[in-house]
């Protein structure tokens, strides 16, 4: 997994609540058996005027000029500013894969869908929860300042605005540790393989019906 330590990047403000993972990456693209290449279909139904299907040449598509990520001023944005409950709905990890593949590295909003929030951390993407008043402030600043950028420091858990004001955010220590180091958590878990085996052996004796092997 790619490390996340610090980021200084352009911000794209996406002023919608309840953006679901079906909207982030529509179902027709879930048929891929790969992890990569989803970026070109990120927000497909909003980003393009024509209907998207897998395998199309992006150059042949009709971009929706009104969609935030199509506006020249936000080209190259790596921070997406969002509203409540971003990433709700389906558990599809294709959503963070698409966001990451598109070039986004951090998301800032008031709340995120639970499973989506988890999935982000597995893919080097940092979702940051801030209080509503601070998110409102960022939307306001981004609307009035072309080229609006933010600095994010995961080590110190701060988002630093252009005016120097630092907004602090919470992140679980374990997730932070994995993201700062780019650790694969399967490897970390397998360091406890003996403990898992021991737990499993006891469980097999106490509740053998959970280990039924015949159908």
């Amino acid at each position: 997994m790619r490390k996340f330590t610090q980021l200084d990047a352009l911000v794209a403000p996406f002023d919608r609540a309840n953006v679901d993972t079906d909207a982030i990456i529509p179902k027709q693209f879930l048929k891929s058996i790969k992890r990569s290449g989803f970026g070109q279909n990120l927000f497909d139904e909003w980003r393009y005027l024509d209907h998207g299907e897998p395998g199309q040449d992006p150059a042949s598509r009709l971009p929706n000029p009104d969609f935030v990520l199509n506006q020249p001023r936000y080209r190259g944005a790596a921070i997406l500013l969002t509203r409540d409950n971003f990433g709700c709905g389906s558990s599809r990890e294709h959503a963070p894969w698409a966001l990451e593949d598109f070039g986004l590295r951090a998301l800032i909003g008031t709340s995120f869908g639970d499973i989506f929030y988890n999935n982000c951390f597995k893919n080097g993407l940092l979702p940051i929860r801030l209080p509503k008043v601070e998110v409102d402030g960022l939307f306001d600043q981004a609307a009035h300042a072309p080229g609006y950028r933010l600095r994010i420091n995961l080590e110190t858990q701060t988002v630093i605005r252009p005016d120097g004001k630092a907004l602090s955010f919470e992140v679980d220590a374990f997730r932070k540790f994995c993201l700062l180091n780019g650790y694969d958590d399967i490897g970390l878990t397998l360091r406890h393989a003996d403990k898992i085996r021991e737990f499993e052996a006891i469980r097999r004796i106490e509740q053998p019906w959970l280990f039924s092997e015949n159908l």
Binding site: N118, I186, L190, I196, E200
Partner: peptide
């Protein structure tokens, strides 16, 4: 419900973080 990275984690470790 879990994501695909977690599916892999459960396959490999029988556990979920």
């Amino acid at each position: 419900g879990i994501g695909t990275s977690e599916v892999e984690h459960v396959l490999a470790t029988q556990c979920l973080l």
